[in-house]
Design a protein around this nucleic acid. Structure first.
Length: 443
RNA sequence: GUGGGUGUAGCUCAGUUGGUUAGAGCGUCUGGUUGUGGCCCAGAAGGCCGUGGGUUCAAGUCCCAUCACUCACCCCA
């Protein structure tokens, strides 16, 4: 039998989370949920599997190759693992119209699947947390969704991050103004998006190399370079391109959005308009967002934008929708790297270990444990017979802050000992006040 | 899909111009200590050196292939 033992392995890009990790993840998930609730977003859950037809044709050709198909022997439905939470939302809205009130503000925290090559900050199964507002065309909704991102990251203790804002309408206007043919817009955007990485010269070279007309490139670069670090970016852009309809509209939206953010008290230091930020997914139609950190080099922590047309793929009339997706995995990776967890988040949920002095004292220890649990203290009873030293060692290794122990002497007097491992403080108290003693020693 | 790096103990890694019985630290277990963890001391377990082939008297070491992991590109959270 042991000769046939199989190697324990995981599918590529997928991970187990052991308890110590899960405790940290749950903490992050909890903070995220709290903030969403503060903004009035409500939970939604959808299946991991969707019908293939629901997902296909929404993300673009390249992305579609990364969708996992699923099947079971004899299954007749064509299934796929969800690729994000946005398309399922659109499906839900179209399917449950009558049960949904607009504006529909929902969040969803769930794993999604992408068959990509894994690397730093990139997995094949990863959690996303999406917040979206369905049914509001005004940028007040975009502002609210951005407020959620900023609040969440601040609440998690991120010292610095930047939410970049741009507008699809403006991007297409820039292409139009420069004279880049529609067929090359994709290439154009892809290169522009690398501005931060490869600089103005890099972008220029790449555009030329991609065969875009030199004059168009020059006009394009003038728009980017002049404005990239300027405070009055919008004003400058308006002077140059104000005549182009979509440019005027995009600029107006960005101004409104900015005003809403001010009204909501979102600190300006976390927000920046950046014309070189482009989002890959095809369904965005207006304002787009992306959050970056410079400290660990890890890509974006969140991404999103307005996609007024997507729901129309499931319904006769579309509904204006905007939202963001928080990259929970990357947020967690950064928090690990920067050590942003509060001190009380340890490697265990257990607050007190109740030791067992010997077999004859096990009944008493069991009762003490029950007493603690009744009082709402997370207590673990030592389930094996071990030497006292080993029991303390177990608690120490596992990070349990307190050990409760009742030996023959204490038992005879109706007392119990509580020891705090951090500083070695030990007290002996009447068993009836055990719970309150433990509670006071936890702080 | 393209390119680079790395595979030796549970983990992190050493291992000389190829040479006899492959090492360390950490971790684990046992004991020193049958009323108390961390520190210290003594000891133990734990290895098809990723896999297959080749060169050689001799391969952890050199060559080829392959697989896995990893970083970067493309793309993305």
């Amino acid at each position: 039998m042991s000769a046939n033992r199989i190697q324990p392995r995981l599918p590529k890009g997928m991970r187990d989370f052991l308890p110590a990790d899960m405790i940290k993840r749950d903490y992050v998930f909890g903070v995220v949920r709290d903030v969403f609730h503060l903004y009035g977003f409500e939970p939604l859950s959808t299946p991991v599997l969707e019908l293939r037809e629901t997902l296909y044709g929404k993300y673009g050709e390249d992305a579609e190759k990364l969708i996992y198909n699923a099947q079971h022997p004899g299954g007749k439905e064509e299934l796929a693992l969800r690729y994000d939470l946005t398309v399922p939302l659109a499906r839900v809205v179209a399917m449950h119209e009558s049960a949904i009130m607009l504006p529909f503000k929902r969040y969803q925290l769930a794993p999604v699947y992408r068959g990509e090559r894994p690397q730093k900050g990139r997995y094949r199964e990863f959690y996303q947390c999406d917040v979206d507002i369905v049914g509001v065309a005004d940028v007040s909704a975009d502002a609210e969704v951005l407020g959620v991102v900023v609040s969440t990251l601040r609440r998690l203790g991120f010292p610095n991050f930047t939410v970049k804002i741009n507008n699809r309408k403006l991007l297409s206007a820039m292409g139009q103004y420069s004279g880049v043919p529609d067929a090359q817009l994709g290439d154009l955007y892809r290169s522009i998006d690398k501005f931060d990485k490869i600089g103005a010269d890099g972008v220029r070279d790449e555009l030329i190399q991609r065969g875009i007309d030199a004059e168009a490139v020059a006009r394009m670069m003038a728009l980017l370079v002049d404005n990239h670090l300027n405070a009055d970016k919008l004003g400058i852009l308006e002077d140059v391109m104000g005549g182009v309809d979509s440019a005027a509209e995009g600029i107006r939206e960005l101004r409104d959005l900015s005003a809403h953010l001010n009204d909501a008290g979102v600190p300006r230091q976390f927000v920046e308009i950046d014309f070189t930020m482009v989002r890959g997914l095809g369904y965005y139609t207006g304002p787009i967002f992306e959050t970056v950190v410079t400290e660990p080099q890890i890509g974006s922590l969140s991404g999103g934008g307005r996609y007024d047309g997507l729901i129309g793929m499931f319904r006769k009339e579309s509904l204006p929708t905007t939202g963001v997706s928080l990259g929970i995995e990357r947020i967690i990776d950064v928090m690990d790297e920067l050590g942003l967890y509060p001190a009380h988040i340890g490697g265990t949920v257990v607050q007190a270990l109740v030791g067992v002095f010997g077999p004859d004292l096990r009944p008493a220890a069991t009762a003490l444990t029950a007493q603690l649990r009744e009082a709402g203290i997370r207590a673990e009873l030592m389930l094996q017979d071990r030497k006292v030293g080993q029991q303390f060692n177990y608690a120490d290794k596992k990070g349990i802050p307190l050990v409760v122990l009742q030996g023959p002497d204490e038992a005879a007097r109706g007392e119990v000992k509580v020891k705090r491992l951090r500083d070695g403080v030990e007290v002996t108290v009447a068993a009836v006040v055990l719970a309150e003693t433990v509670r006071s020693m936890l702080v």
